[in-house]
Amino acid sequence: MSAAREPVTWKRITVAIPYLWLLVFFLLPFAIILKISLADPIIARPPFTPLFDDQGQLSVTFDNFLFLLTDKLYAYTYLKSVFMAFAATVLCLLLGFPMAYGIARSSSSMRSLLLLLIVLPFWISFLLRVYAWMGLLNNYGVINNTLMFLGVTDQPIQIMYTDLAIFIGLTYSYLPFMILPLYASLERMDLDLVEAAQDLGASRTQAFWDITWPLARPGVIAGCLLVFIPAMGEYVIPYLLGGPESLLIGRVLFDEFFVNRDWPLASSVAIVLLLLLVVPIVFMQRNDARQAEAE
């Protein structure tokens, strides 16, 4: 009897520990965010109205969400975040695809070194890598000094504190996230397929679109989502490289919470951001599950 019961008990304990951890520290926080997003801001500690008022009545308000929907600045900020994240994703794909392709097609000793060089920046602090661009993009930074030295321009070109700088920062920081999944699917690909297609009269472009691209698609999807989703909520890059008017949603949320101390509004901003990201996140998990099954 006990021998048969034992695995079940152990199984329960093994499941229970991480399960409880995630319920308390992952799911419960979202319930709290949702609760606070439905409260009114007040000057108190904590700075929001309780869910049940003095008479025990449920008190919820949708004012925060209505405000977000009607306020032009917020609509603009969300749209701009989507646009910037999307543009960075496209740029990462345009640069990352040929790179991943080149790495996957190089000799095996070269390949591991090239991959190592892709992963290496990832292990160096994200913050310091963004910081490194500050030194390059400044009005008297490396790029402008070089351009002026070469006589391309006699006035520094304003790159720092513009959207272009944010754009460069996003692409630079998230490029490895694009290359790695692309590489994984390109490396598995059977090169004979492309050769066979070309032997049968397909042009190189045709072979690419008919063979390489469909086979690389899971990697393309994974890479794009791995860039797009975190780029949407980015805080450090717009703060350090963008100007004071560079309104991206991650930064607005941070300021709403810490500067304006409007906890309910910050919570609503987070909920709306999450709703915007639900579709890509679910899509990504599906893509992962399908790839795991294929293996």
Binding site: I33, P230, G233, E234, Y235, G250, A270
Partner: peptide
Amino acid sequence: PLVMPEVITGLSLLLL
């Protein structure tokens, strides 16, 4: 958590 924007994770945990 792999794909959750950091601002959301941070805010939700602080509120917790």
